[in-house]
Nucleic acid binder design. Sequence first.
DNA 1: CGCAGTGTTGAAGCATATCAACTTGGGTGG
DNA 2: CCACCCAAGTTGATATGCTTCAACACTGCG
Lengths: 239, 239
Amino acid sequence: MIEPLMLNLRTRDHVTMHEEDVLKRLIEQRREFSAGEDLVQQGSRPSFSTVLLKGIAARYKVLENGSRQITALHVAGDFVDLHAFELKTMDHGVVGMTPCQVGLADHGGLRKISETEPHLTRILWLSTVIDGAIHREWIVAMGRKSRKSHLAHIVCELFLRLKVVDQTRGMSFALPLTQLELADVLGISLVHLNKTLQTLRRDAVLTWVNRTVTIENWDDLARIAQFDPTYLNLVCEAR
Amino acid sequence: MIEPLMLNLRTRDHVTMHEEDVLKRLIEQRREFSAGEDLVQQGSRPSFSTVLLKGIAARYKVLENGSRQITALHVAGDFVDLHAFELKTMDHGVVGMTPCQVGLADHGGLRKISETEPHLTRILWLSTVIDGAIHREWIVAMGRKSRKSHLAHIVCELFLRLKVVDQTRGMSFALPLTQLELADVLGISLVHLNKTLQTLRRDAVLTWVNRTVTIENWDDLARIAQFDPTYLNLVCEAR
DNA sequence: CGCAGTGTTGAAGCATATCAACTTGGGTGG
DNA sequence: CCACCCAAGTTGATATGCTTCAACACTGCG
């Protein structure tokens, strides 16, 4: 089922039953990946794009010295490499942070959609452009926010993105990452991430036990993060 | 004339004469901005997108404490806010780093193109997706590279992007930014940028005098930057 | 039971910010 | 034409943030 994808898209624009049908036929094939497995290899030229249906995945690059930077996190309902339909060659890898179930969208089928379904094409285009907006927000957080603020920002963002696809419970959500993986998101060391996390716990804005984050005080968390959700485009309007 | 835009697009894919005509008719209106002026305001809902035809512009966000982070640099031939066609609301501002000449592409016209010109639509989509690829590369540089490496990376990237639109002379190009502006690109302090720059000069990989950068040793510069141009998609293939 | 992955802690050293002063060069008004 | 001014660049000193190294605690699992 491509439910999460539909929840994701319908948060931003109306999608007709016909368009939903087209997507269902596009994304017939399924695959499963275990945690730590690459969903997409850097340098590959995939003939299909991948929609995450279950789990959490990350785009990443590894540098010469072996350090890794995660450039994006993806949740159910996200295309993890729709841009590959345009770029052809993957300039980064995508790895599962958890066991992942995905759907595959053939590039031939996508091309056909771009020829016959202009509105649906714009919606798909939109979803790549929202990726870009998130990238920009991450750049701002990395460049000009404190690590504490950056971490708070990531939590705020993940909460809202997971809420869209119905993966939150109250103010809690599953965050089955290790601290090392989170450090690779922020671009800091494991030790420093650990200490930064503790400052947020000490401020009583969140807890993170049993791989589950609970936001205890959204307003304070958002204030620490200087979080403004505009960039997530959680607004349904004609595109 | 939209020459730089055509050079930009034709580097990535074949563009027919008909498509060029369509773009010419789309981008009829011109505007001029002086250095330091906003081309696009954060929070605005523009009814057109902006192609930079002359000059250098930057996307940026300003935080509560007044610090600024530049999230992208744009050169002639770049759409600075094509994503606004999809996102509707600008989540960041765009400012001219130099006097800028731009062309305006009406969103109504873009919508029409998306209905009638699928191939051209894919090319425009591609250009937003390349923006995203550049964002990711910046995230990697900010998170996991040394400031020296990051700065070298910016120089390598700008050189290749300017070469595409014929704005280089040999191994030199105009870089009419102040060090303060460059510091806002890297997300570091002005003082530290200055000292980082000097390490590159000491390594004799580049000079920067009279607002002109000359790359004295590309191989060393690229090695310091760990620069791999794949992400710029400087490859002409059918999209 | 022991092992491996994960989380936590403290200490030492390097990287970067901040503050403050000084230099340089081009532009402008007296 | 000179004196001045201002923006941009440069430099050194000090303080803070962050990394690295190393050790130890906890937990789930074979």
